[in-house]
Design a protein around this nucleic acid. Structure first.
Lengths: 210, 210
DNA sequence: GGCAAATTGACCCATATGTGGGATTGTCGG
DNA sequence: CCGACAATCCCACATATGGGTCAATTTGCC
């Protein structure tokens, strides 16, 4: 059906005008072929597996099914397809849930056509196209929080806790008594406002304390 | 000292030839001014805080101090400076440790001069420049592992564990008995090869099981 | 129908953990 | 010099947790 060597795309975009605009932009770019534009999540989930395009540009704010829900449903049954979010939404939940769900890129709707096409090339060359502000947010999410409320010693203990060591093991590793370890842990719990191993590990990893 | 509106850079690069090449590339780009090229980590750590450039391009494989160590030392005392890694290294440890240490970008040494300059512009425009393969690795690191060994119910329980709930709370939340929760947890421990709350939460978050 | 796996529930027991104290020593800044 | 804080150590007690074992019920699949 397609020209050989052409990369096939589908769009999922509820605004017909924007969808049509995007379709034209892609259609006029050599090497790319826009198969279809879906305007709701239901139809996209039902028919995308049959079309099995190389790339799907996926909006998040759809009238029926959330775009991320579509992604979760589709990704496992379309392993050869790269899903890229194309949305106005840039809140943390949308961004990181989309990434967790398997998005290979995240572009904002204000991306100029030329950059959109560049992003598609980058995707097919093994990259992961992101709008600059999105890239910044993703990279920043790795940054260790600089000024911790914890002392150096408490940081060390926290690291040991996150490695799953019980306090006898920690005591031996740090050449201090088990009692001391427990004291430190009590202080850590107070400072981080938690009250169990699971909570402290969870909070430490979520807040990038280690 | 600088032209107004010029962005000042420093390089940390142990190979003098490459360093000089990069300096020339940057120097000939309008809007950028290359202040200095350091060829070892010691000198860079000592003198960068005085120069306080807008951007530092930082190699990782240095003869004395590891580039990431430099980054850890310098970032807290140079909050206005953007550090970007420029390295041949692309192993997971180098990449993710650099990000944790506060790198704002990660470029590979094979980046063509034009793209390097584009990356500098992107950085100053609020982005986070990355080589495509690096971007792909970073984005992939968020992906939830698709085929878990855990059953649906075990996934649910694991989620609860990661939220720091004890098993009485989990039992009430899921309308099942505490004994059942314990059974599930025991099965989870066996499958994930762990033997404590801390370990299971740690593994779940590291392996993106939740 | 029958088997395997998932889900649910239960018991016992040793140990780890969380919480409440209290105490000593050293360091650092005012 | 003194107060605040970090780091060390100790005691006691109630509860949570991990390990072993067993079994009923449901579900899906051959």
């Amino acid at each position: 059906m397609n020209e050989p060597n052409q990369i096939s795309l589908c769009l999922v975009e509820d605004d017909p005008e924007i969808g049509e605009l995007l379709r034209l932009v892609i259609q006029h770019s050599p090497g790319f072929h826009c198969e279809r534009v879906f305007t709701n999540g239901e139809a996209a989930c039902a028919q995308l597996p049959m079309l099995n395009p190389d790339i799907v540009l996926l909006d998040i704010g759809l009238p029926d099914i959330n775009g991320i829900e579509c992604l979760i449903k589709l990704r496992s049954i379309m392993p050869g397809t790269d899903f890229v979010i194309l949305s106005v939404l840039q809140d943390d939940d949308s961004l990181f849930n989309a990434l967790k769900a398997g998005a290979r890129g995240y572009l904002l709707k204000d991306t100029p056509p030329a950059e959109l096409i560049a992003a598609l090339h980058e995707l097919r060359d093994g990259g992961a196209p992101m709008s600059p502000s999105i890239a910044r947010r993703i990279v920043s999410s790795f940054h260790k929080s600089a000024d911790s409320v914890l002392t150096d010693r408490e940081q060390t203990i926290l690291q040991q806790l996150c490695d799953g060591h019980d306090y006898q093991v920690i005591a031996r590793a740090l050449y201090i008594s088990g009692h001391t370890v427990r004291s430190h842990i009590k202080n850590i719990y107070k400072k981080l406002e938690v009250s169990s191993r699971a909570e402290v590990v969870s909070k430490a990893m979520k807040d990038r304390l280690i």
